[in-house]
Structure formats: structure tokens, C-alpha cells
Design a protein around this nucleic acid. Structure first.
Lengths: 276, 276
DNA sequence: ATGGATGTATCGCTATTTTCGATAGGCGTT
DNA sequence: AACGCCTATCGAAAATAGCGATACATCCAT
């Protein structure tokens, strides 16, 4: 089918042969074999090149579909030669920058022959992928308990309000406040703590972008304590006095069947090392 | 990929081997080859059968896509052994019953080694398929002139109002009138000829269904004269006196490149034979 | 423990298929 | 008529797929 597509786009057996690094007779034989399997002429051979028959044009889209399916499969799951396996780790959006780089680093060192895929998404789609066995492990905010999926609390993130300038909550509202969307629960708590009328000008779905924004333009917002610890230490950011602190527990999920796989153990160990 | 799918659904190499009518060692080799191409384990062999790895589960949907693409292609274009080609003929919905059976009959006799596909659709989609070279010829109500597509008038259908009972238009409206939708132009003419307020209770997109309806339940409607000629002759249907007659030209379209193909000539000859 | 049942991996051999290289043949151009 | 540009075909070589037998691992019942 790949050869057919090549011929149909180049309009020549010879050109296709070169592109595919085979001889022209091979191309001829391949097309012939395809036509025999379908018992149907696909290509009209002409004096100067060739063109598709009606059947060939109909066949074209299916050939594309089949070739693409294979290419996508390769893309998605094929491994480099020196790797013996993959570990797929789903991370709730806002934890990506906070956890993934360090985790990758440790995995790379402790399991050099294992390729790692980090999938960044929201809790719900990650849960689905976990259930369907498309990822091996996931960090989630909103786990759904399901048979065969083991859920455990990983940590209890503290969300604190920080600002690029030292101030307290009493000093009144500032222009630079950005709302970082840490999910349903946070939104609810946030609404309780702050007057409803207060709708921030800027809101971010991704914490890293929000952080970059206030670092560049000044402002304030809620971030995970551990994530911005060093900004507080070097006084790039300041804790806003008397501001409420929110908690959000974070969970780790993986298939129960994987509990005693060596790889899972290594992956979890790497995670715990980062957290502590 | 087919073998992979079989294994993933049966959960056993042996069972798959039987279903696919090969030996177990073949199944083993096939899966091994697939895994080697992707450089990735897809199936965990266990004491009692086997199950998919994470990569295997990811691969599954692509395997389905690829296999389906091939199956669909076969479905759509593969030919029985004794056929040497296909002729695809698109017919505007409402001409199906009127023309297709007779045309198929003639083609079957004059070109016994050519399989025929009759595609029934509305003018616009047929025009698209004609342009894309997915059909070889089409009967259209509303042709769009395009380069490389030859359009010629095939006939000039006369739409007449017939009823299951002898009557004239002056006898007033009857309950049994069904509106047969012969397309935009007919709708416009129909609206002009009949008061706008008159909205029929029943309308049909397909003439045959409409015809069957009035033959069974009584009533009246517009039909192609040639199509119902014999009903008038045997007095099953009667021409409604003083009713307006509408005309709708019908066109034949085919790629200009096909003008002197033997098959096209035969197909057109068959058509003309039916019309006269 | 032991033997049997069940399940997959592997090996050697054969048949089939694929590919190549060379050659033949069709068609249009010069 | 010769040449260039196509594709088809043929025989030989190489690669691959499939089979059958056997090996090997594990579970289960005795």
C-alpha cells in the first residue's frame, strides 16, 4: 500500500522505485500483487508514466488510512534499539514542571534502558487512560476509585498566596493578582475565602505560565509551596501576609496488577525521593 | 496486526492459531516479528494464556485501524474472480427505480465480465464523486460545469400530477395529495403553481416510496411521466385534469477523458436504449 | 514430590515469496 | 530509424513464512 501511494503521487514506477530504494521491477511486482489480491486494476500504465483507475482512486483513501495507522503506531510505541521497555507516566497538568523533570532525571539514571513517556493532562482523562491501561502510573488531583486501580495519597500540596512585592492581604486588592486554576475544589475554597464579586482579570490554567507571567510583569497568585520555595528564599517572591492557605491532596494511581513490578517500584521510589 | 488482534481478543496463542488456521509456532513467530519491528514487547506471555502490555494496549487501536482500512478497501473495490473490471454509475435518487434496474440488465448482458456498482445519491454528492473520479458516470438533475467533466442533457422528464381516482384540478383539494420532492427547481415551480398556504400533509423524498404509498392508500402526486406510463394505461392511476405539468431536464455527466472508452460507450448506449 | 495438562519458544527444514539484474517491448520524439 | 523514457517479464538468488517436532515453563491434581 505504501508503494501504491508512492506510485499514485509520483505517477511513475521508476521514480517510486528510486524513492523507495528498490528496483523498478520490484515496484512493478508489488503493484501487480496488490492488484491481484483485490482482483482489480488500480493503475493504468501509460506511455509516459501512469495514472489511477476509478478503483485506484477509491483505494487511495484506504491505503492512506492503513499506512497512517502503522506510522502512528510506530510513532507512539516503537522504541529505540537500546531501550528494553517504556514506562508511561501521566501527570496532572500543574505538576508537570514541578515533578516531571526531576522524576525523568532519576529514572534516566536508575533505569537507563527504559524509555519514559510523560503524559500531561487533567485528572479525568488521565484516569481514563489509567483505567484503559494506556499509562502505567499517574499523579491525580481527583482520583476515582475503581477496581484494579490502586490509589494512594502522594502528598498534600499547600497552595500559598505569593506576590512579587512584600505586602499583606489587608493592604487591599492589587491589580496584579492572577487566578491560577488549581481545579474544582480550589475554586470552591477560593470563592469562599474571597468575595464573590472579586473576579480576577487574568486566570491561568497552567501554573508555570502564571508564574512566568507574574515574575515578568509583577503580581500575585496562588502556587504550590514546594514549587516556589526557592523564589521565597531568594526574595523574588514574598508570602502575602494573613492570606488564607489552601490544601490540595495529590494522589498516585496505578494498576493493582503492577504493584510488585520492578519498574513500578523504581518509578515510585523516584517519586518519593523528589517529594522528600 | 490481524494476528495480534486475534491474540489480544482470545488471550491465547493456541486458540488464535486455530482460528487463523495456522500452527501455534506461526502465531508465535508473527507476534515476535511484530514486536521486533516495534522493538517493544506487546504481549506478556503467562502460564495460563497471555495479556497485553501497556504498549500492546496502545498498539491495539492502531492495529484495528489498519486492519479495518484493508477490509474496507476490499469491501469497496475487490472484485470476484470472474470479473475483469467495474463500472460505477451514480444515479440521482429519484431515478434509481426508473432507470437502474433496466440499465443493470442491459449491462449484465452486453458486458458480462464487468461488475457494476450503482450509487444512489443526490446531485451534489454525485457531482463531487464524479469530480474526484470515484464514479465513472452519473445521472444528475443539477450539474455543475467543471473542467474535465463532460455534461450533456440526457432527457427532459415531464412531471405530471396523477391520482388514484379520475378527477380534475377544479374538483378541489383532496386529502391524499403527497408532495414528492423533485428538488429545488420543482419546489419553486410547485410553489408558484399552487397557493403557498397549501402545505401537503405528506411529503416524500423518494418517488418510489411515494408511489407505493398512493397505490396502497389512494391519493395523488407528481411523478415522471415515463415512470408511471403503464399505470395510466391500465387505469390504476389517472392524469388529473387541467393540472400544471413541470419539466425537469436530466443530465448525464462523465469525465472527458473517458469519452472514447469502450465501457463508457457501452454504458451510454445502454442508457439511450432505455430512454427511447 | 510427580505426572499430566496446558501453554509458549525454538530449531531445522521446505515451500513460497520477494527482490534483483538483465532484457524485452511499447510509444513518442527527434 | 534511432533514441529516450516508460513498464513488463524472466530466471536466479535471497529472504521469509510456515510447519512439525521438540523443549521448556508452569499449574494442578494426585
Amino acid at each position: 500500500m505504501r508503494t501504491f501511494l508512492e506510485v499514485s503521487s509520483s505517477g511513475s514506477f521508476q521514480a517510486s522505485a528510486e524513492k523507495l530504494h528498490v528496483t523498478q521491477s520490484t515496484v512493478s511486482a508489488r503493484i501487480k500483487a496488490l492488484e491481484e489480491q483485490l482482483n482489480q486494476a488500480l493503475i493504468i500504465r501509460k506511455r509516459n508514466g501512469c495514472e489511477l483507475t476509478t478503483a485506484g482512486r477509491l483505494f487511495h483513501k484506504h491505503a492512506v488510512a492503513a499506512v497512517q495507522a502503522w506510522e502512528r503506531a510506530r510513532q507512539e510505541i516503537a522504541l529505540p534499539d537500546d531501550m528494553t521497555g517504556v514506562f508511561s507516566f501521566g501527570i496532572q497538568m500543574n505538576h508537570w514542571d514541578y515533578i516531571a523533570p526531576k522524576w525523568l532525571d532519576i529514572m534516566w539514571k536508575t533505569e537507563p534502558s527504559i524509555a519514559t513517556r510523560v503524559i500531561s493532562d487533567y485528572s479525568d482523562p488521565l484516569m481514563v487512560q489509567l483505567r484503559d491501561g494506556h499509562i502505567d502510573m499517574a499523579i491525580l488531583y481527583r482520583p476515582i476509585h475503581q477496581p484494579n486501580i490502586h490509589i494512594e495519597q502522594l502528598l498534600d500540596d499547600k497552595l500559598i498566596l505569593v506576590s512579587t512585592e512584600p505586602r499583606t492581604l489587608e493592604m487591599g486588592r492589587v491589580d496584579g493578582y492572577v487566578f491560577v486554576d488549581w481545579g474544582d475544589e480550589f475554586r470552591a475554597q477560593h470563592n469562599l475565602a474571597f468575595p464573590k464579586a472579586y473576579i480576577p482579570k487574568i486566570s491561568f490554567g497552567a501554573a508555570t505560565i502564571a508564574l512566568n507571567h507574574i515574575l515578568k510583569n509583577g503580581g500575585s497568585g496562588y502556587f504550590i509551596e514546594g514549587f516556589i520555595k526557592h523564589f521565597l528564599e531568594d526574595e523574588t517572591l514574598f508570602l502575602v501576609g494573613n492570606s488564607p492557605t489552601f490544601h490540595r491532596p495529590t494522589y498516585l494511581g496505578y494498576p493493582t496488577t503492577a504493584i510488585d513490578s520492578r519498574l513500578h517500584k523504581a518509578a515510585i521510589r523516584a517519586l518519593r525521593k523528589i517529594i522528600n
